[in-house]
Deep mutational scan, measured.
Amino acid sequence: KLPPGWEKRMFANGTVYYFNHITNASQFERPSG
């Protein structure tokens, strides 16, 4: 399970990334916590 605010998303080319809808942060590494 991801930390609060984070969700797993995917680009059109299939690349997975993680987006935080609270802070609008995005990253390729899975957030810890």
Rank of each mutant, 00 (worst) to 15 (best):
K1P: 15
K1F: 13
K1W: 13
K1Q: 14
K1D: 15
K1N: 14
K1E: 15
K1A: 15
K1V: 14
K1Y: 12
K1R: 12
L2T: 03
L2S: 02
L2A: 03
L2D: 06
L2V: 04
L2I: 05
P3H: 04
P3D: 06
P3T: 04
P3Y: 03
P3R: 03
P3I: 03
P3V: 02
P4D: 11
P4T: 09
P4G: 08
P4L: 11
P4N: 10
P4A: 11
P4R: 07
P4S: 10
P4Q: 10
P4H: 12
G5A: 06
G5F: 09
G5W: 06
G5Q: 07
G5K: 02
G5M: 05
W6F: 01
W6S: 00
W6Q: 00
W6G: 00
W6H: 00
W6N: 00
W6M: 00
W6D: 01
W6T: 00
W6Y: 01
E7V: 10
E7I: 08
E7H: 07
E7L: 04
E7A: 05
E7M: 04
E7T: 08
K8H: 07
K8R: 11
K8S: 08
K8L: 15
K8V: 15
K8G: 05
K8Y: 09
K8E: 15
K8T: 10
K8I: 15
R9A: 05
R9Q: 06
R9Y: 08
R9H: 09
R9E: 03
R9D: 03
R9T: 06
R9S: 05
R9W: 04
R9P: 02
M10F: 14
M10L: 11
M10N: 09
M10W: 12
M10P: 04
M10Q: 14
M10K: 10
M10S: 11
M10V: 15
M10Y: 14
M10H: 12
F11N: 15
F11T: 15
F11R: 09
F11S: 15
F11C: 06
F11I: 06
F11K: 11
F11Y: 15
F11H: 14
A12W: 08
A12I: 07
A12C: 08
A12K: 11
A12P: 15
A12L: 10
A12V: 09
A12F: 06
A12Q: 11
A12R: 08
A12Y: 06
A12E: 13
N13D: 15
N13A: 04
N13L: 02
N13R: 01
N13M: 02
N13S: 08
N13E: 07
G14S: 03
G14I: 03
G14D: 03
G14T: 02
G14H: 03
G14M: 04
G14A: 02
G14K: 03
T15D: 11
T15R: 10
T15Y: 08
T15I: 13
T15M: 12
T15A: 10
T15E: 12
T15N: 07
T15F: 09
T15L: 11
T15Q: 14
T15P: 02
V16G: 03
V16E: 10
V16S: 08
V16P: 08
V16L: 07
V16A: 07
V16Y: 12
Y17R: 01
Y17F: 08
Y17E: 05
Y17M: 06
Y17T: 02
Y17K: 03
Y17I: 09
Y17H: 04
Y17V: 07
Y17S: 02
Y17W: 08
Y17D: 04
Y17A: 03
Y18Q: 00
Y18F: 08
Y18A: 00
Y18P: 01
Y18L: 00
Y18S: 00
Y18I: 00
Y18H: 00
Y18R: 00
Y18V: 00
F19P: 01
F19R: 02
F19M: 03
F19Q: 02
F19V: 07
F19Y: 14
F19A: 02
F19H: 08
N20D: 05
N20A: 01
N20P: 00
N20M: 01
N20R: 00
N20Q: 03
N20S: 06
N20F: 03
H21G: 07
H21W: 13
H21Q: 10
H21S: 14
H21K: 12
H21P: 10
H21N: 13
H21A: 12
H21E: 09
H21R: 11
I22H: 10
I22Q: 09
I22N: 10
I22R: 06
I22V: 11
I22K: 07
T23Y: 06
T23P: 00
T23M: 06
T23D: 06
T23F: 05
T23W: 05
T23I: 05
T23G: 02
T23A: 05
T23S: 07
T23K: 04
T23R: 02
N24I: 05
N24P: 01
N24L: 13
N24R: 08
N24F: 10
N24W: 07
N24Q: 13
A25E: 15
A25G: 07
A25K: 13
A25P: 00
A25D: 10
A25M: 14
A25I: 14
A25L: 13
S26Q: 13
S26P: 03
S26W: 15
S26M: 15
S26I: 15
S26G: 07
S26K: 10
S26T: 15
S26R: 09
S26N: 07
Q27Y: 05
Q27D: 03
Q27R: 06
Q27K: 04
Q27I: 08
Q27L: 06
Q27H: 05
Q27S: 09
Q27G: 02
F28L: 13
F28W: 11
F28I: 12
F28S: 10
F28Q: 08
F28K: 09
F28P: 07
E29T: 10
E29Q: 10
E29D: 11
E29S: 07
E29W: 08
E29H: 10
E29F: 08
E29L: 07
R30M: 12
R30P: 14
R30L: 12
R30E: 11
R30Q: 09
R30D: 11
R30V: 12
R30Y: 14
R30I: 13
R30F: 15
R30W: 13
P31D: 02
P31M: 00
P31R: 01
P31G: 01
P31S: 00
P31H: 01
P31L: 01
P31Y: 01
P31K: 01
P31Q: 00
S32R: 10
S32F: 11
S32E: 13
S32I: 12
S32W: 12
S32M: 13
S32A: 12
S32Q: 13
S32L: 13
S32N: 12
S32G: 13
G33Y: 14
G33N: 12
G33F: 15
G33M: 14
G33H: 13
G33W: 15
G33T: 13
G33P: 12
